[in-house]
């Protein structure tokens, strides 16, 4: 610890009374850098890379095994038929479940409190998470699309497939992020997110008809499924990636891309309004002793 000449004057400057201009914007930019660094660090962490690679390799293996398979009912290759569900799963798991676990973990290790101790740190924290899950979803979805392109025919049916898939992924992401923040702030620690949270997630996926048609579910579960964004994300992706005739298997008997986009946008809007409130509430309860109490509890359990 060597001494550096102190550049400050002994008299203290007047305190800035109001927030300087553009403070929020600059905090948001710092948040984007934060998210990019988190993603970069994730790519340097063996466990995380394993998670990405295992998922992509598993999907590639399924595609390769079914490379000649055709879904007779809809007249599409099996790989294409699986793709919408896989993409929707990635979004939900990363942006809702992964985020919830991450936030719960970071409450416990003090990251959230650290954000709270910085001016506009919570803005940066939230933007950081959104940036990070966007990168992760983009990365994993790109891996899956590459695998699908390599082993299956008929993924790129028309020039509008890519922009529409991107639009739906972004909307699905923004609609799922608030769910992640809610779950992450409701449960007190990452272990209960892992337990109860994953139970909730699997239940949601089951009623959303991502892999088995929702039409096979009891009526009231169909209603529940249609309330949440996952159903509409899956529906939207199917309408883009599958031929129009496949719409017959949908709940309404046809694809309604407009409705899917509308519901997702509504969820996204709701989330953008709700997430800051929830996080403020969650952050208000954070203090050094709250963090150390949680740590002590976690250590006792081990």
């Amino acid at each position: 610890m060597s001494t550096v000449p102190a550049p400050t004057s002994p008299t203290s400057p007047p305190a800035p009374s109001a927030a300087p201009r553009g403070v929020r914007t600059r905090a948001a930019r710092a948040g984007v850098r934060r998210g990019l660094t988190e993603f970069d660090r994730s790519l340097h962490t063996a466990g995380d890379i394993g998670y990405y690679v295992v998922g992509a390799v598993a999907f590639a293996a399924v595609l390769w095994a079914n490379r000649n398979g055709v879904q007779e009912d809809f007249g599409v290759a099996t790989g294409v038929f699986l793709l919408p569900g896989v993409l929707a799963m990635i979004v939900v798991f990363t942006a809702a479940y992964g985020l919830a676990t991450g936030v719960a973990t970071e409450r416990e290790d003090g990251t959230l409190l650290r954000a709270k101790s910085m001016p506009n740190g919570m803005t940066g924290y939230v933007v950081g998470w959104i940036t990070r899950v966007t990168c992760e979803v983009g990365f994993v979805a790109a891996l899956m699309m590459l695998a699908a392109t390599a082993f299956t025919d008929g993924v790129w049916r028309s020039p509008s497939v890519l922009p529409l898939v991107l639009l739906l992924l972004v909307l699905g992401l923004v609609a799922s992020v608030p769910l992640g923040f809610v779950v992450g702030s409701v449960f007190k620690n990452p272990r209960s997110v892992g337990g109860w949270g994953s139970l909730v997630m699997f239940a949601l996926i089951a009623v959303s008809g991502l892999f088995a048609p929702a039409a096979a579910l009891p009526g009231y579960l169909q209603v529940v499924g249609q309330v949440f964004p996952m159903y509409w994300l899956g529906h939207g992706l199917r309408s883009v990636l599958l031929p129009e005739s496949a719409g017959a298997a949908e709940l309404g008997g046809e694809f309604v891309l407009g409705a899917a986009v509308g519901v997702l946008a509504l969820w996204a809007l709701l989330g953008l309004l709700l997430a800051p409130v929830l996080l403020r509430r969650m952050a208000r309860r954070e203090s050094g002793s709250a963090v150390s109490a949680r740590r002590d509890k976690a250590l006792q359990r081990v």
Partner: peptide, 13 residues
């Protein structure tokens, strides 16, 4: 990363 949050609050001295 953390320094960035303080940059807008820089004042002379």
């Amino acid at each position: 990363q953390f320094g960035a949050y303080y940059a807008p609050y820089s004042v002379p001295g």
